[in-house]
Computed example of a mutant assay.
Amino acid sequence: MKYIALFRGINVGGNRKVDMKQLRTLFESLGFSQVSTYINSGNILFESELDTKSVLMKIQNCFHNTFDFEIPTIVKTENEMKKIAKSIPEEWQNDPTQRTDVAYLFPEADSKKIIEELPLKIEFLEIRYIKGAIFWNIKRENVNKSQLAKLISHKLYKSMTIRNVNTARFLAGEKE
């Protein structure tokens, strides 16, 4: 089965550095195949015969023994990633006029109610939930009005890992 692992908070601002080549080698040593990384922010694509729960446990155990910091990880199947990406309206893009992001949710936050709990002014953005993620689109002129920046200091921020729409679509195989 094809999987995508999403790592939260690595290689951001020079902190919690993880070399992508080292990560690929580590995944190969765990018996995963067809291992590749996408950009330096913690996205790895691979294949395994194991189920999702077993894959995640294997990764977490290995990380615990390899790194001196925690690396929160979400593992999704290729089909789950495709379902999320396909639910994003095609016209939602990242361009000079608009911004679209996907927040992949850790299990403890995976609920439609998360939208109500976030410190956002939703009249300035469109936000939607699908199992496993929330995603939003905002006119760039409204980014500050939406209070999107307050998300970083909210308690639920640690229960998600955010990717821009281009990355989300690439990881789902929607863009090559």
Rank of each mutant, 00 (worst) to 15 (best):
R8I: 03
R8S: 04
G9L: 00
I10P: 03
I10Q: 08
G13W: 06
G13M: 10
G13C: 03
G14P: 00
G14V: 02
R16D: 06
V18Q: 12
V18A: 10
D19Y: 03
D19F: 08
M20P: 00
M20S: 03
M20G: 07
K21S: 05
Q22A: 15
Q22D: 15
Q22W: 11
Q22K: 15
L23Q: 02
R24V: 13
T25E: 15
T25H: 14
L26T: 00
E28K: 10
S29P: 04
S29Q: 13
S29I: 08
S29Y: 10
S29W: 03
L30M: 11
S33Y: 09
Q34V: 09
V35F: 11
V35N: 05
T37A: 12
N40K: 12
N40M: 07
S41M: 11
G42F: 09
I44H: 00
L45H: 01
L45D: 00
F46P: 00
E47A: 10
E49R: 09
L50E: 15
L50M: 15
L50Q: 14
D51M: 12
T52Q: 14
V55P: 05
V55L: 11
L56A: 09
L56W: 10
K58I: 04
K58V: 02
Q60V: 10
Q60L: 15
Q60S: 13
N61A: 08
H64S: 14
N65W: 02
N65Q: 13
N65R: 12
N65C: 05
T66W: 08
T66N: 02
F69D: 02
F69W: 13
F69Y: 12
E70H: 13
I71G: 05
I74M: 13
I74K: 09
V75P: 02
V75C: 07
N79V: 14
K82I: 09
K82R: 10
I84M: 01
A85G: 08
S87I: 01
S87W: 03
S87L: 00
I88V: 13
P89A: 15
E90H: 14
E91V: 07
E91H: 11
E91R: 11
E91P: 01
W92C: 06
N94I: 08
D95N: 15
D95Y: 11
Q98N: 09
R99A: 13
R99D: 11
R99K: 14
R99N: 12
R99E: 14
T100E: 04
D101R: 10
V102S: 04
A103T: 00
Y104P: 00
F106D: 04
F106P: 01
F106M: 03
P107E: 06
P107R: 01
E108A: 15
A109Q: 06
K112A: 13
I114E: 02
I115T: 02
I115C: 03
E117M: 02
E117F: 06
E117R: 00
L118D: 09
P119V: 01
P119F: 09
L120D: 06
K121D: 14
I122E: 07
L125W: 13
E126N: 15
I127W: 05
R128K: 14
Y129R: 05
G132I: 07
A133F: 13
A133H: 10
I134N: 03
F135V: 09
W136F: 15
W136A: 11
N137L: 14
K139S: 08
R140W: 05
R140I: 07
R140P: 05
